[in-house]
Design a protein around this nucleic acid. Structure first.
Lengths: 339, 339
DNA sequence: CCGCAAACCGTAAACGTTTACGGCACTATG
DNA sequence: CATAGTGCCGTAAACGTTTACGGTTTGCGG
């Protein structure tokens, strides 16, 4: 069924060398031949064999986006990643590159999984998400010399570019707003596992509180799964806390629904008995009271992410000057009725 | 950095042929050599180059799962796909196969995208999701002779195996339950685009209604986007419908939150003024009143899906006898307070 | 001691590309 | 006219692997 470059060349009465050059837009090919080859390839439905091509050239033309997907760690909801993907792909399309998503099975170690994928040489570069505060994947890829970028920072530094949401700014803005509204005891949800964003967020919150001359109470940092359930359990914790806080800031978009439900069940009205500041998620728009939240431009974030990656790849670096990219994506606070 | 089979053979004082045979568990290799090769490969960190391997053997060892991701079509939420993925991967792991997800950019035609991916020969087989009632991807893959399976049925038949949720049973059970509770005018949400499940669902609902001697009113089939917003807009439609229905069945898990909100805003209490039967989604657990819904074993669904695919691939068929698999995954109705 | 089979191993061809190199025809220049 | 240069093209090697084939050793029965 599928024809090779040999057949195509034969059909044209040319050598495979010339055909290859014509298709790859190299010099040393007459405009006439180039056109003939183009048309014949189209007509015969020729597409180059990727295995042969990448065996020879050492590149696959594929970028891999690795995500971890535990049972409970569904995280931000898929619209989060999908928006980022769209941004990434819009950049990749300029270079005939394609994106694949690597889904680490929930029962496999993320580090092992990544190693397997790297050794498969399925992709020319990697994008890591859900970075942990200490993340062995980073050192591994750095040691391998494999180009990569992380969506999220980490204490482990592989010299790679990264792009992250500005959690510090979020924490500060949230605290500022709540304090201005008279709140003195402010709780927050933080990730249960080693996700780095929890650390960044908590540190910034502490700084913001002390800046206002308020004490920082570690008991008000409520560890929660990144899911509706996490929000629900956080609400239960909140309700039973001694000297109950009057406000809560949510680190994860999926916390919102669960928290609202949990608070209501405990007889606390969100936005009335307890002020809530959250992050944007598709479901947040349909809550009452409407959520005071942070909105992020995930598409733009994906674009930056991808450009940062390409800038770190020898092949594409010239098109993306400026060296190592380490960028924070801005977020804007959208006031609602909840805080 | 990465060493090849040649270096490995040289280091062992063996020929590359023997090394290859040893690593691939072929006969004609002494147990002693096999062991030495194994250990040396481990020690030197040798991993076979996938390009070379698949160039020679014509297989990549990768299965691709294609999903479409429009802005508004975030669909079932990611926990849906993640659960299916886990099921699929659990089977693939038995054969040293790996899964990648292909995310069709929202601004690209799905058919073109698939063609590109197929021609890249990035995978040995494909899994298609979000099947449309008439789906050109199916005929394309069938014509290409590329093994594939669809998650969801279609009127387009490529002779391929498929696995689908039992939407007909859901429709019938929902109608039965609602009619038994005294409801006579029952609305449903159906997908706006050409998704095949809408057709199946609507047909079964109609049959169930007529079986109960009730009329089928097409105006009660409310087209809705597969998102919270879709549910919200459906609620608005519902509230303004002449001779307002007393019950609604939701085809998409993400409809629930939006619908609850929409109804509430219109002064209608879910479960009281209007009975609601929905599908399971992560957020559904945190709603009040609790949702009467269908629960699906998505992991098992993924397992069946993958086995169906492997059974249709020449290389693996012998391990999965039984011919063409076309299966419906069962769902169970979980009663709640909403209907 | 010979022959034969079995067990093991090396050789080399193939998979489909890309690309360095050399060759040919032609033109421009001295 | 000789020479150098240019534009175009074919040849062949290389990428890293798998595998058919043939060769060498070994053990064993006659």
């Amino acid at each position: 069924m599928a024809i090779g470059i040999k057949e195509l060349a034969q059909h044209l009465g040319l050598s495979i060398g010339t055909v290859s050059r014509a298709l790859n837009d190299r010099p040393d090919v007459s405009p006439d031949s180039r056109k003939r080859v183009r048309e014949a390839a189209e007509a015969l439905g020729y597409v180059p064999n990727q295995s042969g091509r990448s065996l020879r050239s050492g590149a696959t033309g594929v970028i891999a986006f690795m995500m971890q997907t535990g049972h409970e760690t569904t995280g931000q909801g898929d619209s989060f990643f999908m928006s980022v993907f769209d941004g990434v792909q819009s950049v990749l399309a300029r270079h005939q590159l394609d994106l694949v998503a690597l889904l680490c099975p929930s029962d496999e170690n993320a580090d092992d999984y990544l190693k397997r994928m790297v050794s498969r040489r399925i992709a020319d570069a990697f994008i890591l998400s859900s970075t942990q505060t200490v993340d062995p994947r980073i050192t591994f890829l750095a040691k391998q010399g494999m180009p990569f970028v992380t969506l999220g920072r980490s204490q482990t530094d592989g010299g790679q570019p990264w792009v992250d949401l500005d959690f510090a700014a979020m924490a500060q803005q949230a605290v500022d707003r709540l304090v201005a509204a008279g709140h003195r005891r402010i709780a927050m949800t933080v990730p249960q596992d080693g996700a780095n964003l929890g650390r960044v967020f908590a540190d910034a919150a502490q700084a913001a509180l002390t800046a206002h001359g308020l004490p920082f109470d570690p008991d008000l940092m409520i560890a929660a799964l990144p899911s509706e359930r996490g929000g629900y359990e956080a609400a239960q914790r909140l309700a039973t806390l001694p000297d109950r806080p009057t406000a809560v800031v949510l680190i994860d978009p999926s916390h919102t629904t669960g928290l609202y439900r949990g608070l209501t069940e405990s007889g606390l009205a969100p936005g009335h008995d307890i002020a809530v500041v959250g992050r944007w998620g598709p479901q947040a728009a349909y809550l009452s009271p409407s959520l005071t939240h942070f909105r992020e431009d995930l598409f733009a974030c994906g674009v930056t992410l991808c450009e940062a990656l390409l800038a770190s790849m020898p092949t594409y670096a010239e098109k993306y000057p400026g060296g190592l990219v380490r960028a924070l994506c801005p977020t804007v606070l959208v006031p609602g009725d909840s805080a």
